[in-house]
Design a protein around this nucleic acid. Sequence first.
DNA 1: TCTGGGGTCCTACAGCAA
DNA 2: TCTGTTGCTGTAGGACCC
Length: 451
Amino acid sequence: MDAFFASAEQASKPSLRGKAVIVGGLGPRGVVATASYEARVFGVHSAMPMAQARRLAPNAAYLVPRFGFYRAISEQVMGLLRALSPLVEPLSLDEAFVDLEAGGAAWDEASARLAGEKLRTDIRAVTGLTGSVGLAASKMLAKIASEQAKPDGLVVIDPGSERELLGPMSVRILPGVGPATGDHLRRAGIHTVDEIVEAGEDELVRLLGKAHGHGLYAMALARDERPVVAERETKSVSVEDTYDVDIHDRLRVGMEVQRLADRCVRRLRGAGLSGRTIVLKVRRYDFSTLTRSETLRGPTDDPAVVREAAARLLESVDTTGGVRLLGVGVSGLADYTQEDLFAQAAGEVGEISEEEPGDAVAAEGVEVAVERRFAAGHDVVHAEFGHGWVQGSGLGRVTVRFETPDSEPGRVRTFRVDDAALAVAEPLPLVPVEGGATGLRPDLVSHPHHP
DNA sequence: TCTGGGGTCCTACAGCAA
DNA sequence: TCTGTTGCTGTAGGACCC
Protein backbone atom coordinates (compact mmCIF):
# COMPACT_ATOMS: atom_id res chain seq x y z
CA MET A 1 0.00 0.00 0.00
CA ASP A 2 1.21 3.49 -0.79
CA ALA A 3 1.97 5.72 2.22
CA PHE A 4 -0.52 3.49 3.95
CA PHE A 5 -1.37 5.20 7.25
CA ALA A 6 -1.41 8.66 5.69
CA SER A 7 -3.48 7.51 2.70
CA ALA A 8 -6.00 5.81 4.97
CA GLU A 9 -6.37 9.05 6.93
CA GLN A 10 -6.80 11.09 3.78
CA ALA A 11 -9.47 8.68 2.53
CA SER A 12 -11.19 8.94 5.88
CA LYS A 13 -10.98 12.74 6.06
CA PRO A 14 -11.89 14.60 2.85
CA SER A 15 -10.39 17.87 4.07
CA LEU A 16 -6.93 16.28 4.15
CA ARG A 17 -6.89 15.04 0.57
CA GLY A 18 -4.10 16.61 -1.44
CA LYS A 19 -2.54 17.96 1.78
CA ALA A 20 0.61 17.11 3.68
CA VAL A 21 -0.38 14.52 6.29
CA ILE A 22 2.01 13.13 8.86
CA VAL A 23 1.09 10.16 11.06
CA GLY A 24 3.16 9.30 14.09
CA GLY A 25 3.79 9.88 17.78
CA LEU A 26 2.79 13.41 18.71
CA GLY A 27 4.63 13.56 22.03
CA PRO A 28 7.93 15.38 22.47
CA ARG A 29 9.80 12.21 21.51
CA GLY A 30 7.58 10.98 18.71
CA VAL A 31 8.77 9.87 15.29
CA VAL A 32 7.08 9.84 11.91
CA ALA A 33 5.40 6.54 11.03
CA THR A 34 4.17 7.60 7.59
CA ALA A 35 4.24 10.84 5.63
CA SER A 36 1.87 11.43 2.70
CA TYR A 37 3.51 12.11 -0.65
CA GLU A 38 2.56 15.77 -0.28
CA ALA A 39 4.54 15.84 3.00
CA ARG A 40 7.53 14.04 1.47
CA VAL A 41 8.02 17.02 -0.82
CA PHE A 42 9.18 18.92 2.28
CA GLY A 43 11.71 16.21 3.06
CA VAL A 44 9.64 14.48 5.74
CA HIS A 45 9.99 10.71 5.83
CA SER A 46 9.40 7.67 8.04
CA ALA A 47 11.44 7.35 11.23
CA MET A 48 12.25 11.07 11.27
CA PRO A 49 11.89 12.72 14.69
CA MET A 50 8.55 14.51 14.81
CA ALA A 51 10.22 17.72 15.97
CA GLN A 52 12.24 17.82 12.77
CA ALA A 53 9.14 17.09 10.69
CA ARG A 54 7.36 20.02 12.32
CA ARG A 55 10.21 22.32 11.38
CA LEU A 56 10.16 21.10 7.79
CA ALA A 57 6.38 21.06 7.36
CA PRO A 58 4.82 23.30 10.00
CA ASN A 59 1.47 23.45 8.19
CA ALA A 60 1.00 19.72 7.69
CA ALA A 61 -1.78 17.83 9.47
CA TYR A 62 -0.35 15.79 12.35
CA LEU A 63 -2.24 12.68 13.40
CA VAL A 64 -1.81 9.85 15.85
CA PRO A 65 -1.92 6.36 14.27
CA ARG A 66 -5.18 4.37 14.50
CA PHE A 67 -3.97 0.80 14.30
CA GLY A 68 -7.40 -0.80 14.66
CA PHE A 69 -8.58 1.12 11.62
CA TYR A 70 -5.51 0.23 9.56
CA ARG A 71 -5.76 -3.40 10.63
CA ALA A 72 -9.31 -3.63 9.36
CA ILE A 73 -8.22 -2.31 5.95
CA SER A 74 -5.19 -4.58 5.99
CA GLU A 75 -7.40 -7.62 6.52
CA GLN A 76 -9.47 -6.70 3.50
CA VAL A 77 -6.33 -6.50 1.37
CA MET A 78 -4.84 -9.70 2.77
CA GLY A 79 -8.14 -11.38 1.91
CA LEU A 80 -7.71 -10.34 -1.72
CA LEU A 81 -4.16 -11.72 -1.69
CA ARG A 82 -5.26 -15.05 -0.26
CA ALA A 83 -7.76 -15.36 -3.07
CA LEU A 84 -4.74 -15.42 -5.40
CA SER A 85 -2.73 -18.01 -3.51
CA PRO A 86 -2.64 -19.82 -0.21
CA LEU A 87 1.01 -18.78 0.07
CA VAL A 88 0.77 -15.23 1.42
CA GLU A 89 3.49 -13.89 3.71
CA PRO A 90 2.54 -10.61 5.39
CA LEU A 91 5.53 -8.40 6.22
CA SER A 92 3.51 -5.74 7.99
CA LEU A 93 0.03 -4.28 7.86
CA ASP A 94 0.60 -2.92 4.39
CA GLU A 95 2.93 -5.33 2.65
CA ALA A 96 3.00 -9.02 1.76
CA PHE A 97 4.66 -11.54 -0.53
CA VAL A 98 2.39 -13.77 -2.63
CA ASP A 99 3.56 -16.92 -4.41
CA LEU A 100 1.44 -16.62 -7.53
CA GLU A 101 2.72 -19.83 -9.06
CA ALA A 102 1.76 -21.87 -6.00
CA GLY A 103 -1.73 -20.43 -6.23
CA GLY A 104 -2.03 -21.17 -9.96
CA ALA A 105 -2.86 -17.50 -10.39
CA ALA A 106 0.03 -16.93 -12.80
CA TRP A 107 2.48 -19.03 -14.80
CA ASP A 108 4.20 -16.54 -17.09
CA GLU A 109 4.76 -12.81 -17.41
CA ALA A 110 1.50 -12.08 -19.17
CA SER A 111 -0.67 -13.92 -16.67
CA ALA A 112 1.27 -12.41 -13.77
CA ARG A 113 0.81 -8.91 -15.10
CA LEU A 114 -2.88 -9.57 -15.53
CA ALA A 115 -3.24 -10.88 -11.98
CA GLY A 116 -1.29 -7.88 -10.67
CA GLU A 117 -3.43 -5.32 -12.45
CA LYS A 118 -6.61 -7.05 -11.35
CA LEU A 119 -5.34 -7.04 -7.79
CA ARG A 120 -4.67 -3.32 -7.93
CA THR A 121 -8.15 -2.70 -9.27
CA ASP A 122 -9.69 -4.86 -6.56
CA ILE A 123 -7.72 -3.15 -3.79
CA ARG A 124 -8.96 0.18 -5.02
CA ALA A 125 -12.56 -1.02 -5.25
CA VAL A 126 -12.60 -2.68 -1.85
CA THR A 127 -10.57 -0.20 0.20
CA GLY A 128 -10.64 3.03 -1.78
CA LEU A 129 -6.83 3.13 -1.51
CA THR A 130 -4.03 2.57 -3.99
CA GLY A 131 -1.55 -0.25 -3.79
CA SER A 132 1.53 -1.03 -5.84
CA VAL A 133 2.64 -4.41 -7.16
CA GLY A 134 6.11 -5.75 -7.91
CA LEU A 135 6.36 -8.95 -9.94
CA ALA A 136 9.58 -10.96 -10.11
CA ALA A 137 11.09 -14.39 -9.68
CA SER A 138 12.19 -13.93 -6.06
CA LYS A 139 11.21 -12.11 -2.90
CA MET A 140 14.12 -9.70 -3.06
CA LEU A 141 13.36 -8.68 -6.64
CA ALA A 142 9.61 -8.48 -6.10
CA LYS A 143 10.29 -6.13 -3.22
CA ILE A 144 12.59 -3.94 -5.30
CA ALA A 145 10.02 -3.94 -8.10
CA SER A 146 7.25 -2.86 -5.75
CA GLU A 147 9.40 0.00 -4.43
CA GLN A 148 9.92 1.16 -7.99
CA ALA A 149 6.21 0.80 -8.69
CA LYS A 150 5.19 3.20 -5.93
CA PRO A 151 2.99 5.08 -5.91
CA ASP A 152 0.04 3.44 -7.61
CA GLY A 153 1.97 1.35 -10.12
CA LEU A 154 3.06 -2.09 -11.26
CA VAL A 155 6.58 -3.13 -12.21
CA VAL A 156 7.74 -6.44 -13.64
CA ILE A 157 11.35 -7.55 -13.53
CA ASP A 158 11.87 -9.85 -16.50
CA PRO A 159 13.71 -13.06 -15.82
CA GLY A 160 17.18 -12.69 -17.24
CA SER A 161 17.37 -8.92 -16.73
CA GLU A 162 18.00 -9.10 -12.98
CA ARG A 163 21.80 -8.79 -12.87
CA GLU A 164 21.83 -5.93 -15.30
CA LEU A 165 19.19 -4.07 -13.32
CA LEU A 166 20.80 -4.62 -9.93
CA GLY A 167 24.43 -3.99 -10.91
CA PRO A 168 24.56 -0.19 -10.87
CA MET A 169 22.23 0.19 -7.88
CA SER A 170 23.40 1.19 -4.39
CA VAL A 171 24.17 -1.63 -1.98
CA ARG A 172 21.46 -0.13 0.22
CA ILE A 173 18.69 -1.63 -1.94
CA LEU A 174 19.73 -5.14 -0.90
CA PRO A 175 17.72 -6.56 1.99
CA GLY A 176 19.82 -6.58 5.15
CA VAL A 177 21.98 -3.61 4.18
CA GLY A 178 21.09 -0.77 6.53
CA PRO A 179 23.05 2.27 7.67
CA ALA A 180 25.74 0.32 9.54
CA THR A 181 26.45 -2.29 6.87
CA GLY A 182 26.20 0.39 4.20
CA ASP A 183 28.92 2.43 5.94
CA HIS A 184 31.02 -0.65 6.47
CA LEU A 185 30.92 -1.49 2.78
CA ARG A 186 31.51 2.12 1.75
CA ARG A 187 34.66 2.28 3.86
CA ALA A 188 35.82 -0.80 1.97
CA GLY A 189 35.20 1.06 -1.28
CA ILE A 190 32.06 -0.88 -2.14
CA HIS A 191 29.16 1.32 -3.19
CA THR A 192 27.21 -0.62 -5.81
CA VAL A 193 25.87 -4.12 -6.21
CA ASP A 194 28.36 -4.72 -9.00
CA GLU A 195 31.19 -3.83 -6.63
CA ILE A 196 29.97 -6.48 -4.21
CA VAL A 197 30.24 -9.05 -7.00
CA GLU A 198 33.71 -7.76 -7.95
CA ALA A 199 34.91 -7.91 -4.35
CA GLY A 200 34.09 -11.59 -4.25
CA GLU A 201 32.47 -13.83 -1.70
CA ASP A 202 35.57 -14.36 0.47
CA GLU A 203 36.10 -10.63 0.88
CA LEU A 204 32.46 -10.14 1.83
CA VAL A 205 32.61 -12.86 4.46
CA ARG A 206 35.79 -11.28 5.80
CA LEU A 207 34.09 -7.88 6.02
CA LEU A 208 30.67 -8.88 7.35
CA GLY A 209 30.96 -12.33 8.85
CA LYS A 210 29.73 -15.67 7.64
CA ALA A 211 25.97 -15.51 7.48
CA HIS A 212 25.75 -11.93 6.33
CA GLY A 213 28.64 -12.23 3.87
CA HIS A 214 27.38 -15.34 2.09
CA GLY A 215 23.82 -14.06 2.09
CA LEU A 216 24.69 -10.67 0.65
CA TYR A 217 26.93 -12.08 -2.05
CA ALA A 218 24.07 -14.33 -3.18
CA MET A 219 21.67 -11.37 -3.22
CA ALA A 220 24.12 -9.33 -5.28
CA LEU A 221 24.07 -12.11 -7.86
CA ALA A 222 20.25 -11.99 -7.74
CA ARG A 223 20.24 -15.43 -6.22
CA ASP A 224 17.41 -15.57 -3.71
CA GLU A 225 15.68 -18.88 -3.10
CA ARG A 226 13.84 -17.90 0.06
CA PRO A 227 10.37 -19.43 -0.07
CA VAL A 228 7.18 -17.54 0.67
CA VAL A 229 6.17 -18.72 4.13
CA ALA A 230 2.52 -18.29 5.05
CA GLU A 231 2.51 -19.02 8.76
CA ARG A 232 5.42 -18.11 10.96
CA GLU A 233 5.43 -18.69 14.64
CA THR A 234 5.80 -15.81 17.05
CA LYS A 235 9.17 -15.99 18.81
CA SER A 236 8.79 -13.24 21.35
CA VAL A 237 6.28 -10.81 22.79
CA SER A 238 7.34 -7.46 24.20
CA VAL A 239 6.07 -4.04 25.20
CA GLU A 240 7.99 -0.84 25.73
CA ASP A 241 7.35 2.79 26.50
CA THR A 242 9.41 5.88 25.83
CA TYR A 243 8.63 8.54 28.40
CA ASP A 244 8.06 12.17 27.52
CA VAL A 245 10.65 13.12 30.13
CA ASP A 246 13.33 10.91 31.64
CA ILE A 247 12.42 9.12 34.84
CA HIS A 248 14.92 9.63 37.65
CA ASP A 249 13.00 8.31 40.64
CA ARG A 250 14.07 4.72 41.17
CA LEU A 251 10.75 3.86 42.80
CA ARG A 252 8.87 5.16 39.79
CA VAL A 253 11.14 3.12 37.49
CA GLY A 254 10.22 0.04 39.48
CA MET A 255 6.51 0.79 39.19
CA GLU A 256 6.73 1.31 35.46
CA VAL A 257 8.51 -2.01 35.04
CA GLN A 258 5.68 -3.73 36.92
CA ARG A 259 3.07 -2.13 34.68
CA LEU A 260 4.99 -3.12 31.57
CA ALA A 261 5.28 -6.68 32.87
CA ASP A 262 1.50 -6.80 33.30
CA ARG A 263 0.90 -5.39 29.83
CA CYS A 264 3.31 -7.88 28.36
CA VAL A 265 1.59 -10.79 30.09
CA ARG A 266 -1.80 -9.56 28.92
CA ARG A 267 -0.57 -9.71 25.34
CA LEU A 268 1.09 -13.07 25.95
CA ARG A 269 -2.11 -14.56 27.30
CA GLY A 270 -4.16 -12.95 24.58
CA ALA A 271 -2.09 -14.91 22.10
CA GLY A 272 -2.48 -18.10 24.13
CA LEU A 273 1.27 -18.25 24.79
CA SER A 274 3.67 -18.61 27.66
CA GLY A 275 7.42 -18.17 27.74
CA ARG A 276 10.59 -19.08 29.60
CA THR A 277 12.88 -16.10 29.15
CA ILE A 278 12.06 -12.70 30.62
CA VAL A 279 13.85 -9.69 29.14
CA LEU A 280 14.15 -6.22 30.64
CA LYS A 281 15.15 -3.37 28.36
CA VAL A 282 16.42 -0.02 29.58
CA ARG A 283 17.32 2.98 27.48
CA ARG A 284 19.15 5.57 29.51
CA TYR A 285 19.16 9.34 29.31
CA ASP A 286 22.09 9.21 26.86
CA PHE A 287 20.28 6.73 24.57
CA SER A 288 22.59 3.88 25.57
CA THR A 289 20.45 0.76 25.63
CA LEU A 290 20.95 -2.39 27.61
CA THR A 291 19.02 -5.60 28.11
CA ARG A 292 19.02 -8.07 30.98
CA SER A 293 17.41 -11.46 30.72
CA GLU A 294 16.65 -14.43 32.90
CA THR A 295 15.54 -17.89 31.84
CA LEU A 296 13.11 -19.71 34.09
CA ARG A 297 12.92 -23.45 34.56
CA GLY A 298 9.72 -23.64 32.55
CA PRO A 299 7.38 -21.41 30.54
CA THR A 300 5.00 -19.12 32.42
CA ASP A 301 2.18 -16.69 31.74
CA ASP A 302 1.77 -15.81 35.39
CA PRO A 303 1.93 -12.04 35.84
CA ALA A 304 3.38 -12.38 39.34
CA VAL A 305 6.25 -14.52 38.04
CA VAL A 306 7.02 -12.14 35.19
CA ARG A 307 6.78 -9.10 37.47
CA GLU A 308 9.19 -10.66 39.96
CA ALA A 309 11.69 -11.66 37.29
CA ALA A 310 11.57 -8.17 35.76
CA ALA A 311 12.08 -6.62 39.20
CA ARG A 312 15.11 -8.87 39.83
CA LEU A 313 16.58 -7.91 36.47
CA LEU A 314 16.11 -4.23 37.25
CA GLU A 315 18.23 -4.62 40.38
CA SER A 316 21.30 -5.18 38.20
CA VAL A 317 20.81 -1.98 36.23
CA ASP A 318 22.22 1.41 37.12
CA THR A 319 19.57 4.03 36.35
CA THR A 320 21.26 7.08 37.84
CA GLY A 321 21.06 9.87 35.32
CA GLY A 322 17.55 8.82 34.31
CA VAL A 323 15.86 6.46 31.87
CA ARG A 324 14.00 7.44 28.72
CA LEU A 325 12.62 3.99 27.84
CA LEU A 326 11.65 0.83 29.65
CA GLY A 327 10.54 -2.46 28.13
CA VAL A 328 9.60 -5.97 29.21
CA GLY A 329 9.57 -8.96 26.89
CA VAL A 330 9.11 -12.71 26.97
CA SER A 331 10.78 -15.17 24.59
CA GLY A 332 11.37 -18.90 24.50
CA LEU A 333 7.67 -19.26 23.80
CA ALA A 334 5.48 -22.32 24.14
CA ASP A 335 1.86 -22.40 23.07
CA TYR A 336 0.80 -24.23 26.17
CA THR A 337 1.46 -23.47 29.79
CA GLN A 338 3.35 -26.35 31.23
CA GLU A 339 3.94 -23.89 33.93
CA ASP A 340 3.81 -23.52 37.60
CA LEU A 341 1.43 -26.35 38.12
CA PHE A 342 2.14 -26.01 41.82
CA ALA A 343 1.19 -22.39 41.89
CA GLN A 344 -1.97 -23.09 39.97
CA ALA A 345 -2.90 -25.98 42.22
CA ALA A 346 -2.34 -23.72 45.19
CA GLY A 347 -4.42 -20.97 43.62
CA GLU A 348 -1.44 -18.64 43.66
CA VAL A 349 -1.48 -17.49 40.09
CA GLY A 350 -1.33 -13.73 40.24
CA GLU A 351 -3.97 -11.38 38.98
CA ILE A 352 -3.13 -8.82 36.38
CA SER A 353 -3.78 -5.39 37.75
CA GLU A 354 -6.69 -3.70 36.02
CA GLU A 355 -6.26 -1.67 32.87
CA GLU A 356 -4.03 1.30 32.99
CA PRO A 357 -5.96 4.24 31.62
CA GLY A 358 -7.18 4.46 35.19
CA ASP A 359 -3.64 4.63 36.49
CA ALA A 360 -2.73 7.22 33.91
CA VAL A 361 -5.65 9.38 34.93
CA ALA A 362 -4.69 9.21 38.55
CA ALA A 363 -1.10 10.08 37.76
CA GLU A 364 -1.61 12.80 35.22
CA GLY A 365 -4.84 14.48 36.04
CA VAL A 366 -8.27 14.54 34.49
CA GLU A 367 -7.54 17.22 31.90
CA VAL A 368 -4.84 15.23 30.18
CA ALA A 369 -6.93 12.07 30.31
CA VAL A 370 -9.86 13.74 28.62
CA GLU A 371 -7.66 15.22 25.96
CA ARG A 372 -6.16 11.81 25.42
CA ARG A 373 -9.64 10.41 24.94
CA PHE A 374 -10.11 12.94 22.15
CA ALA A 375 -6.81 12.20 20.47
CA ALA A 376 -5.93 14.10 17.29
CA GLY A 377 -7.37 12.33 14.28
CA HIS A 378 -9.76 10.06 16.15
CA ASP A 379 -13.42 9.86 15.21
CA VAL A 380 -16.16 11.41 17.28
CA VAL A 381 -19.90 11.82 16.95
CA HIS A 382 -21.93 14.83 18.07
CA ALA A 383 -25.63 14.59 18.86
CA GLU A 384 -26.46 17.56 16.65
CA PHE A 385 -23.66 17.80 14.08
CA GLY A 386 -23.04 14.11 13.40
CA HIS A 387 -19.79 12.32 12.59
CA GLY A 388 -16.41 14.02 12.60
CA TRP A 389 -12.85 13.81 13.82
CA VAL A 390 -10.74 15.57 16.39
CA GLN A 391 -8.59 18.20 14.81
CA GLY A 392 -7.02 19.28 18.05
CA SER A 393 -7.60 19.62 21.75
CA GLY A 394 -6.27 21.56 24.68
CA LEU A 395 -7.19 24.00 27.41
CA GLY A 396 -10.43 22.14 28.01
CA ARG A 397 -11.57 22.45 24.39
CA VAL A 398 -11.88 20.01 21.52
CA THR A 399 -11.92 21.14 17.91
CA VAL A 400 -13.84 18.82 15.60
CA ARG A 401 -14.17 18.77 11.83
CA PHE A 402 -17.48 17.31 10.75
CA GLU A 403 -17.02 15.19 7.66
CA THR A 404 -17.16 11.55 6.56
CA PRO A 405 -15.27 9.56 3.89
CA ASP A 406 -17.96 10.23 1.28
CA SER A 407 -18.86 13.80 2.24
CA GLU A 408 -17.48 17.12 1.05
CA PRO A 409 -14.74 18.62 3.22
CA GLY A 410 -16.53 19.63 6.39
CA ARG A 411 -16.76 22.53 8.81
CA VAL A 412 -14.90 22.95 12.06
CA ARG A 413 -16.50 23.55 15.45
CA THR A 414 -15.07 23.77 18.94
CA PHE A 415 -16.61 22.29 22.09
CA ARG A 416 -15.82 21.98 25.73
CA VAL A 417 -14.22 18.61 26.45
CA ASP A 418 -17.04 17.80 28.86
CA ASP A 419 -19.78 18.56 26.31
CA ALA A 420 -22.31 15.78 26.87
CA ALA A 421 -23.34 15.78 23.21
CA LEU A 422 -19.86 14.73 22.12
CA ALA A 423 -18.69 11.10 22.19
CA VAL A 424 -15.85 9.01 20.82
CA ALA A 425 -16.89 7.06 17.68
CA GLU A 426 -15.62 4.21 15.52
CA PRO A 427 -14.12 4.85 12.08
CA LEU A 428 -16.52 4.73 9.13
CA PRO A 429 -15.83 2.42 6.17
CA LEU A 430 -13.91 4.16 3.39
CA VAL A 431 -16.00 2.60 0.66
CA PRO A 432 -19.76 2.69 0.98
CA VAL A 433 -21.09 -0.85 0.99
CA GLU A 434 -24.48 -1.64 -0.45
CA GLY A 435 -27.01 -3.81 1.36
CA GLY A 436 -26.09 -2.50 4.79
CA ALA A 437 -23.19 -4.91 5.02
CA THR A 438 -19.81 -3.34 5.47
CA GLY A 439 -16.32 -4.38 4.63
CA LEU A 440 -14.85 -3.38 7.94
CA ARG A 441 -14.76 -5.52 11.03
CA PRO A 442 -18.09 -5.24 12.81
CA ASP A 443 -16.49 -3.88 15.95
CA LEU A 444 -14.94 -1.02 14.03
CA VAL A 445 -18.04 0.08 12.26
CA SER A 446 -20.67 2.56 13.16
CA HIS A 447 -23.54 3.84 11.09
CA PRO A 448 -23.10 6.61 8.58
CA HIS A 449 -24.43 9.79 9.97
CA HIS A 450 -24.63 13.05 8.13
CA PRO A 451 -24.77 16.49 9.69
C1' DT B 1 12.88 19.26 21.98
C1' DC B 2 16.90 14.02 18.41
C1' DT B 3 16.24 9.50 17.75
C1' DG B 4 8.83 4.93 18.46
C1' DG B 5 7.27 0.24 18.94
C1' DG B 6 7.17 -4.40 17.71
C1' DG B 7 9.58 -7.73 15.95
C1' DT B 8 13.59 -11.00 13.60
C1' DC B 9 18.19 -12.78 12.99
C1' DC B 10 23.20 -12.97 13.84
C1' DT B 11 27.47 -12.89 16.66
C1' DA B 12 30.37 -13.39 20.54
C1' DC B 13 31.40 -15.22 24.75
C1' DA B 14 31.06 -18.01 29.00
C1' DG B 15 30.09 -22.23 31.19
C1' DC B 16 29.20 -26.91 30.94
C1' DA B 17 28.99 -31.63 29.18
C1' DA B 18 30.26 -35.32 26.23
C1' DT C 1 43.43 -38.87 34.15
C1' DC C 2 44.41 -34.91 31.62
C1' DT C 3 43.70 -32.08 27.63
C1' DG C 4 41.58 -30.44 23.60
C1' DT C 5 37.51 -30.17 20.61
C1' DT C 6 32.81 -29.60 19.78
C1' DG C 7 28.28 -28.42 20.63
C1' DC C 8 24.60 -26.64 23.30
C1' DT C 9 22.47 -23.17 26.38
C1' DG C 10 22.11 -18.78 28.34
C1' DT C 11 23.20 -14.05 28.10
C1' DA C 12 24.20 -9.40 25.92
C1' DG C 13 24.43 -6.53 22.18
C1' DG C 14 23.78 -4.89 17.47
C1' DA C 15 21.78 -4.51 12.92
C1' DC C 16 17.80 -4.45 10.34
C1' DC C 17 12.86 -4.19 8.87
C1' DC C 18 8.22 -1.91 8.56
